[in-house]
Design a protein around this nucleic acid. Sequence first.
DNA 1: GTGAAAGCGCTAACAT
DNA 2: ATGTTAGCGCTTTCAC
Lengths: 364, 364
Amino acid sequence: MDVARLAGVSQKTVSRVFNDEPYVSADVRRRVLDAAEQLGYRRNNAARALASGRTRSIGVVSLGTALYGPASLLIGVERVVRDTGYALRVVNTMEGDPAGVAGAVDSLLDQGVDGIVISEPIDEADADGQASLRADVPVLVLGAPSPVTAPTVLTAGDGADLMARTATQHLLDLGHVTVHHLAGPHRWYAARDRLDGWRTTLTAQGRDTPPVVEGDWSAASGYRAGRELAEDGDVTAVFAANDDMAIGLIRALAEAGRRVPEDVSVVGFDDIPVAAYVTPPLTTVRQPFDAVAQEGLKRLVHTIENPDADPLPPSDPPVDLIVRSSTAPPPCRTPPARGRRTASRSDGGTHRPSSPNGGQSTQG
Amino acid sequence: MDVARLAGVSQKTVSRVFNDEPYVSADVRRRVLDAAEQLGYRRNNAARALASGRTRSIGVVSLGTALYGPASLLIGVERVVRDTGYALRVVNTMEGDPAGVAGAVDSLLDQGVDGIVISEPIDEADADGQASLRADVPVLVLGAPSPVTAPTVLTAGDGADLMARTATQHLLDLGHVTVHHLAGPHRWYAARDRLDGWRTTLTAQGRDTPPVVEGDWSAASGYRAGRELAEDGDVTAVFAANDDMAIGLIRALAEAGRRVPEDVSVVGFDDIPVAAYVTPPLTTVRQPFDAVAQEGLKRLVHTIENPDADPLPPSDPPVDLIVRSSTAPPPCRTPPARGRRTASRSDGGTHRPSSPNGGQSTQG
DNA sequence: GTGAAAGCGCTAACAT
DNA sequence: ATGTTAGCGCTTTCAC
């Protein structure tokens, strides 16, 4: 190694300097650093990985979608991974991808990673996929438990259940007799979590559990669901599994002459950036993406670096319900004359004195 | 190597099989594959990289934001990179990050990548950063030219200019006397491109160039800008540099009693998923993220694998203006009685027979 | 068509 | 505090 020669020391000493190992005199350290600087030296990671058996990189399996949730989670993961000194390798899976998550994990294993993060897992199409999801490095599953075989399997961010309960409860507290649910695709753990939270809250209070309408996270699917729901005069409150669907839903409701929130209250999920600015400003649950990523990665890295120690215990992230203007008490039980609303026109309730930025926030 | 022993061949032959090199008999290939299968063998990438001097991975510097544009671009890049057989390393830069893009590039170089993609570059805070952005591998800059020093510097996706011209022209064609512009942060190349396109169109037709209002891409900033613009009775058309700002803008306009599109037309940029479902459905320009990523990466990989050949020539992506309901001809010059609209309420034009999904699309 | 030898640039283990 | 010796698992080069 040229740096060693230039600094007049052994290769091993250079290695020591760059790895911040003890037992290098200040003088030697300086000489090495200078020599390296002068030569524009940067240590070869491939050689390092080969010799040490560790790649110092973490792989993440992410959904190939610009949906706010998955994208935010990925960003959070990147930041934390980099802070811990690891590099990040990313592999996306598209929904319906034949190779799926198993294929993505495999490709990460091929590349060589010290740990794997599976973000927002969904069920694979074929049942036999179950067994094939195995890794020989620790795995962190974000958003839900998942059938993975690995030396250590960690879970974080599975708090959607509680958040969904909070959202549903908010509607109930407003006086609604029951709450309808516009769910995400059933294959998504995240969607099932939210659905469970909703159902749990309803049954715990002895309320009716109306049939679930399932969307695909898109505003378009929310719109379709909205047309359906608008038919049913009994619907006074809907909890949508994400904000995009809530927005589509509100539009369909408005077009059908059902005002939000006067006739129907809607709660979303995610708190996407435009949520405060649509009409009406959306009441929603903000997901703590960064906190989840941070907490999960901390435990994953701990496990990577202390394979024999006990894994760190999980900790629950906060629930953050943002109350804006899409929710209100239900309309009076003895409704005014049916002719009261004109069928062909609608508005989203902009007549309220509005301050979109705000919305009171409730920690729970 | 155990596989070699089990198959009764040399190490080199195993290598040949796994690299699809010629000159291996079908029989031997089978034996090797079987042995590998049996042993659960997967080749060690670190060793491969060390011996060959190529890491077969590409690094991408991305903005650490869930904004639709950057996120979509990243997804496109990942897909294409994986299709070409490379691995993807990701480093995010936050706006205002002291290390910035230069730091990100450096960390990628440290990790060892064969090429670098810089997505959506923005100006660094300090002027002296210019010189430090150098890499010893080919670089692809997505979205704009950028001062980078590297063996090869490629550019793709710098067509925002043309798209902005199309958007502005659409408004002019509708009969508006001039068009206001709600720009993105000036530090972003993408924002400047759009601004340039807007200005060019206006001056080319001898129109007035109203002062630019600058936002930060967020709906909140669009809302602020909207309050300002609503004061000015001359404003009949606004081209917003992204959809989020357009949505905030529309809300502010609505609150001020200015109807969209009857009083003011608004065009957005991006075509985010909810664009068709907000009120009114947004006319916007769809960005061809996938096409840009694909085209750019194809050229980058070509350069990586044929360092001495001439780089492939760039090709222009299509422009896709989606006309929905937020644009219309300007109000009559001799306006109807002022009392026609009730000041305290507003709607976004939902009275139109609406089909949010649609919107006619114009290839240009 | 196949194999032998050398070495990529590090780190691990053991000197000194 | 610093140096020596071995490899890590592959690809390269050249020989057969």
